[in-house]
């Protein structure tokens, strides 16, 4: 009788210790979530829209680049040339997603998950700038309205769908700035976005 009771007690203690460890681990989940929400997060880049800069080996490998996006005060302190991530209302990713789930394509107008995709592009114009647009845009020049930015991909018209397709975006949509490339390792390091300020045509 006694050994059985001792075994039950021991098992109970062990389970209790395991349960406590599990609980102690779980209490850290909100901390990690808060860090990812306010400070920074890893992001996997998919698609060729930033081609010469991100996903540069797109024709050799299916592996995606990994970057760090810095999320603290994301909609503020924006400069021309910065690479930002934002919730896209209409993007190539969205349409591709709808192709993958064809039942949602016909009811696409009612699909609530359209705005759930983040895009990564380079800021070309800040509010008040006059932009020389590319072909899908209806007018040859446009002034970026208050509280908006003009974003374009490095990939150009063929590889990128950007503000030339859907117009300037609100800075409130911006979720983070891409500050570092993590993977692949030979391009590891800080994103020198200020070097690109000279390449911007406007």
């Amino acid at each position: 009788m006694k050994p059985i009771w001792a075994r039950i007690k021991r098992d109970h203690q062990r389970a209790g210790r395991f349960g406590y460890r599990l609980f102690a681990f779980a209490t850290w989940i909100p901390v990690v979530s808060m860090f990812n929400h306010y400070v920074g997060e890893l992001a996997w880049i998919s698609g060729p829209s930033m081609y010469p800069f991100l996903n540069a080996e797109k024709d050799q490998t299916t592996r995606n680049d990994v970057v760090i996006k810095y999320k603290f005060n994301a909609p503020y302190g924006l400069r021309r040339g910065m690479i930002v991530t934002f919730w896209c209302a209409i993007d190539d990713l969205v349409s591709r997603w709808q192709v993958l789930r064809p039942h949602s394509a016909d009811s696409g107008s009612r699909n609530p998950y359209d705005p759930e995709v983040e895009a990564v592009k380079r800021i070309v114009g800040l509010e008040g700038d006059i932009i020389r647009t590319r072909s899908p845009y209806p007018s040859p020049t446009v002034r970026v309205p208050m509280g908006h930015v003009w974003v374009e991909g490095d990939g150009g018209k063929r590889l990128s769908r950007d503000s030339n397709d859907y117009g300037p975006i609100s800075t409130n949509l911006i979720t983070g700035k891409v500050t570092h490339i993590v993977w692949p390792l030979h391009r590891f390091g800080r994103v020198q976005w200020w070097d690109y300020a000279g390449n911007i045509r406007n």
Binding site: P75, Y113, P145, M146, G147, H148, S170, T171, N172
Partner: peptide, 21 residues
């Protein structure tokens, strides 16, 4: 958030697009 399950007639809290923050 981000318009999930929103119907016509609902009151929503939104970020003003022309005024950051």
């Amino acid at each position: 958030r981000r318009g999930r399950r929103i119907c016509v007639g609902d009151c929503v809290v939104y970020g003003i697009p022309v005024a950051p923050g």
